[in-house]
Simulated scan of single mutants.
Amino acid sequence: MEKLFVKVCGLRLERDVDTAVEAGADAIGFVFAESPRRVDAEAAARLARRVPENVLTVGVFRDQPADEVRRLADLAGVRGIQLHGSEGPDHYAALRRDGLTLIRATSYREGSPRHGGFGEDLLLLDAPVPGSGSTWDWTVKGLTEPGERWLLAGGLSPRNVREAVRSARPWGVDVSSGVESSRGVKDPALITAFVEAARSAR
């Protein structure tokens, strides 16, 4: 069975990046959109340099012009871009280039988007109110097609990620607020517990 892909997002401190890497995370996200977790390109570049090549570094953006996204991603040296707004297929086409992983993040409402619909490499399905840390119904039938490369997000934590993975059967999971001691402040113990719990679900 393929290993569950685990992404830890919204990291701002060296301590938290090191913890996620040591715990075995497959991807680490740095937020460039408006958020209490936002970092600038210089800070993200410093953090990204701590991450080994086998762990994907991702810049997270929301409704920002493609040229700004490209500029910040280049300055930070991230190898993935996650778009978490109303960006259409043209945005993805403008950012497409060899070696760059594109992630389309969208909120689940009625009916699931299909992986690859905008030319993205990975699809992320979030709660109806993204970034709220609220859970949603992961047991919806037909959430995705078997074998699709998609990440489950929204309200995940060390306490519920096993149940979520077993119910929704995602290719991977993404966490941010579920490993925080307060809004925007990561807890290293929770990061480690989340990765361990997610992997044990398989």
Rank of each mutant, 00 (worst) to 15 (best):
residue 4 L to N: 04
residue 5 F to R: 07
residue 6 V to F: 05
residue 6 V to Y: 09
residue 7 K to E: 14
residue 8 V to Y: 09
residue 8 V to N: 03
residue 10 G to I: 01
residue 10 G to W: 08
residue 10 G to D: 10
residue 12 R to N: 01
residue 13 L to M: 04
residue 13 L to W: 05
residue 13 L to N: 00
residue 14 E to H: 00
residue 16 D to L: 00
residue 16 D to P: 00
residue 17 V to E: 02
residue 23 A to T: 09
residue 24 G to Q: 09
residue 26 D to E: 15
residue 28 I to N: 06
residue 32 F to W: 05
residue 37 R to N: 06
residue 43 A to W: 06
residue 43 A to R: 13
residue 43 A to N: 04
residue 49 R to G: 08
residue 49 R to T: 02
residue 54 N to H: 15
residue 55 V to Y: 07
residue 55 V to Q: 03
residue 56 L to C: 06
residue 56 L to R: 03
residue 64 Q to M: 15
residue 64 Q to D: 13
residue 64 Q to N: 10
residue 64 Q to R: 05
residue 65 P to Q: 07
residue 65 P to E: 08
residue 68 E to I: 06
residue 68 E to L: 07
residue 71 R to F: 10
residue 72 L to R: 02
residue 72 L to E: 06
residue 75 L to E: 14
residue 76 A to I: 04
residue 77 G to Q: 01
residue 80 G to F: 04
residue 80 G to Q: 04
residue 80 G to D: 01
residue 82 Q to T: 05
residue 82 Q to V: 01
residue 83 L to D: 08
residue 89 P to K: 09
residue 93 A to S: 03
residue 94 A to I: 01
residue 96 R to P: 00
residue 100 L to K: 05
residue 103 I to R: 00
residue 103 I to Q: 08
residue 105 A to K: 02
residue 107 S to W: 11
residue 108 Y to S: 11
residue 108 Y to Q: 12
residue 110 E to I: 10
residue 110 E to M: 11
residue 114 R to F: 09
residue 115 H to P: 08
residue 115 H to C: 15
residue 116 G to A: 08
residue 118 F to M: 09
residue 118 F to E: 11
residue 118 F to R: 08
residue 121 D to W: 04
residue 122 L to W: 15
residue 123 L to Q: 13
residue 123 L to R: 14
residue 124 L to Y: 07
residue 125 L to D: 13
residue 126 D to S: 07
residue 126 D to K: 05
residue 129 V to W: 11
residue 129 V to N: 14
residue 132 S to Q: 10
residue 133 G to D: 13
residue 134 S to W: 12
residue 134 S to F: 14
residue 135 T to H: 15
residue 136 W to K: 00
residue 136 W to N: 04
residue 137 D to Y: 15
residue 139 T to G: 09
residue 140 V to C: 08
residue 142 G to D: 13
residue 143 L to W: 15
residue 144 T to P: 04
residue 145 E to Q: 14
residue 152 L to V: 03
residue 157 S to Q: 11
residue 161 V to Q: 11
residue 165 V to I: 15
residue 169 R to K: 15
residue 170 P to M: 11
residue 170 P to K: 06
residue 170 P to F: 14
residue 173 V to F: 13
residue 173 V to Y: 12
residue 176 S to H: 03
residue 177 S to M: 02
residue 179 V to Q: 04
residue 181 S to N: 05
residue 182 S to F: 13
residue 183 R to F: 09
residue 184 G to F: 02
residue 184 G to W: 03
residue 187 D to Q: 01
residue 188 P to S: 04
residue 190 L to K: 00
residue 192 T to H: 08
residue 196 E to Y: 06
residue 199 R to Q: 08
